[in-house]
Design a protein around this nucleic acid. Structure first.
Lengths: 333, 333
DNA sequence: TTGTAGGCGTTATCAG
DNA sequence: CTGATAACGCCTACAA
């Protein structure tokens, strides 16, 4: 156990195999011109020494690390897990590594930019609404492509993928109306989420174009507790909604549980509920929640495609349709 | 938009500032001896060029990347999300980066070892039961420390942290007995999970030491569907259990929903249920599930401590007690 | 305090 | 087909 040990280098292998360092490099380069005998000698020596090629020198020369940084704001929402899972698979399939960066706020991301630049990450994927134009500009200056999910930033090195939040909002309005809703409620997500804004706008537009009264509004977060609070607010008065669109599933669960527990209201008999994200849980017995499937696969596929787009290309934004999955929460018997 | 652009190097900055490259290096090294005037010149030039120090050369020389690889097996379980979240915070606080590696099976990890070695990751954290001794040995040969969570591997470079699964199993037995359970059921996790094995063994031991009959057994997975299937199996016959310990919360939810839907049994009135992990969802109205909190914070803290332990140190395994959180699922009225 | 020179481990280029 | 050599960008002696 020597104090300062160093992993075996190609030079070490070369010495052991009695060849030059270049020969070792060639032995590990697919498709390189090298005699089979030489390759065998090298491989034997490499095996004996436990040699693994160091990737850093190559990165140093090419400035391409094969690492993609994925920035997330928190893991409380299973939706992030779905996204991460899909990204992880896609990146692995593309032979790239994923550097996971968690930021509490955009200010923190600013601090992380130096690190990301230092590691020469090939690209940054922002799965949270990265509203900081400043951080985006810094990355752009470094010519690091950014792919944002459900965001509304724009710029040379910024590409974005969104699910069609506006259209989903409209569809929610049509569905709730078709299923017999007359007094509408909207449980909002955080105000700084472009996705939330678009969903709400679409919902409002959908109601308006059907000649229906606007929705009563409550909420302000994407979590369960927000849904609970929103339900309490919406159903406290005498004019209770009978059809509620929630900015996401997690909030919808909070709404449903609160309706049952605190107001003794049944879903869908007394109130219709629609969510967004189509989490696994949406299919569970206590909820059977009608929801919009963001089609994470497609979202990620689009994002991966945008990662490889050259700078200044025309296609910088893509929208992926979300699909309505209807369950019992909007099916009155 | 030149085709092959290269980020500004310290040499570029030096040229722009009219100083030597080493002066730039010193300007960016905290506590280096450099005249204030020189530093100012350098900083101005750096700012103008958008220079960020490249971390790779340093890594190349020190073989310390500041990157910790976290290996996970899937994200379907919110428990992984909790763990990731905690690790992410801890690593960031320690000024390190997290490379997230998802593997489908241990065989795949073997393939990833080369990559991890190539990037010179400082350590590997395995949040899945990394049962492949082979992969572990490979990493050990490379002198890359491994910290495994809830695993039972051993070796020079392997350290492990576990929650006290056995003790929790015993506690579950005591609790279910104290709350009036007489016929016991166990909903198992995957057979290759050491945590599952320990929980089951502890449960069996707990029942035995109370002079109770052994538990009927079903299941074999950590997900909701496994819980559903296990409940169907356990409650199909005439001898139905009235107290069930589930290897984790997700399975417990499946059990509870199935009892309600398929067997018209009430929890806790007809059946007592205990889970493991204490997910956020365990507190939700439809479940109010008694569960064991793994104390992820402590688990991660312990893991972080083990990351810095020198090779050959004596402390290679730590156990973190899990805390029982009792809710309505075990409180008969 | 500052500049010069060597080396980290690899790939690419070129001469043999 | 093989071996020597020059980068890549930084840090760390060492010399001025």
């Amino acid at each position: 156990m020597s104090g300062n040990w160093r992993p075996p280098s190609s030079t070490d292998v070369a010495r052991a195999a009695g060849v030059s360092q270049s020969a070792v490099s060639r032995a590990f380069t697919p498709g390189a011109r090298i005699a089979e005998a030489t390759r065998a000698k090298v491989m034997a020596a490499a095996e004996a020494l436990g040699y693994r090629p160091n990737l850093l020198p190559k990165i140093l020369q090419t400035n391409r690390s094969g690492i993609v940084a994925v920035v997330v704001g928190g893991f409380y929402n299973p939706y992030f897990a779905m996204t991460l899972e899909a990204f992880s698979l896609a990146l692995t399939a593309a032979g790239r590594q994923m550097l996971l960066v968690r930021v509490d706020s955009d200010r923190v991301l600013d601090g992380v930019v130096d690190q990301l630049a230092g590691y020469r990450v090939d690209a940054v994927v922002s799965a949270l609404a990265l509203t900081s134009q400043d951080a985006a500009d810094q990355l752009a200056k470094l010519r690091i492509p950014i792919v944002t999910l459900n965001s509304d930033l724009a710029g040379d090195w910024i590409r974005s993928v969104s699910s069609d939040n506006f259209a989903a909002g409209e569809a929610a309005a049509r569905l709730l109306h078709a299923r017999g809703g007359t007094r509408f409620g909207f449980v909002a997500g955080p105000a700084d989420s472009p996705a939330q804004v678009a969903r709400e706008a679409g919902f409002a537009q959908g109601l308006a174009s059907l000649g229906l009264p606007p929705a009563v509004r409550a909420g302000g977060g994407y979590d369960y507790a927000s849904g609970e609070a929103a339900a309490r607010a919406l159903f406290a008065g005498p004019e209770r909604p009978d059809a509620v669109f929630c900015a996401n599933d997690l909030a919808a669960f909070g709404v449903i549980d609160t309706l049952r527990e605190a107001f003794d209201l049944k879903v869908p008999d007394d109130v219709l509920v629609v969510g967004y994200d189509n989490l696994d849980m949406a299919a569970w017995a206590p909820y059977r929640l009608t929801s919009f499937d963001q089609d994470v696969e497609a979202l990620v596929e689009a994002a991966m495609a945008l990662l490889s787009v050259e700078a200044g290309a025309t296609c910088v934004a893509r929208t992926v349709p979300s699909q309505l999955v209807e369950r019992e929460s909007t099916r009155r018997r």
